[in-house]
């Protein structure tokens, strides 16, 4: 039996986090979803997730800050930033030059296209 890939979704918009969770679960993923980045961080368990799907513009803790903190707990955590904001790779490198992230998924996107991006990132060794 093949183990389901496990995704952590963090997006402060309840409609988005719940629908992405539902959409990904229908596509065979196991998903934990949070609307509060601080709660996502405090409950984060290292080594569980195959991929983090994280919004950038969030209150209390933005996506970049959340990822930086998660990296302290789980250095090999894979991430895709999922954003409606015009912040891309170059901007990210300016703010966090030591963090290496290349997966930025731009909203709006259909669940079927999101699944394609996620599978590509999961297969990216």
């Amino acid at each position: 039996m093949i183990a389901l890939k496990k995704i952590l979704v963090v997006d402060d918009e309840p409609d988005i986090s719940s629908s992405v969770k539902r959409g990904l679960e229908r596509n065979g993923f196991q998903v934990d979803a949070y609307t509060d980045p601080e709660k996502a961080l405090s409950e984060f368990k290292p080594g569980i997730y195959d991929l983090l799907l994280v919004d950038i513009r969030m209150p209390k803790l933005n996506g970049f800050e959340l990822y930086r903190e998660i990296k302290k707990k789980n250095d090999s955590a894979k991430i895709c930033f999922f954003t409606a904001f015009e912040v891309y790779y170059e901007e990210f490198k300016k703010v966090f030059p030591t963090l290496d992230v290349k997966c930025f998924i731009r909203k709006p996107i259909t669940i079927s296209d999101l699944v394609v991006h996620i599978n590509a990132e999961l297969n990216n060794k």
Binding site: E13, D15, I16, S19, V20, R22, G23, R57, A84, F85, E86, R106, K107, P108, I109, T110, I111, S112
Partner: peptide, 22 residues
């Protein structure tokens, strides 16, 4: 402003798109 306005447009469109897809 364009960055913020586009963010504010794309966010509800994301929810509309996903639920219309469902």
């Amino acid at each position: 402003f364009i960055n913020i306005a586009s963010h504010e447009m794309r966010t509800p469109v994301q929810s509309i798109l996903t639920h219309a897809e469902f």
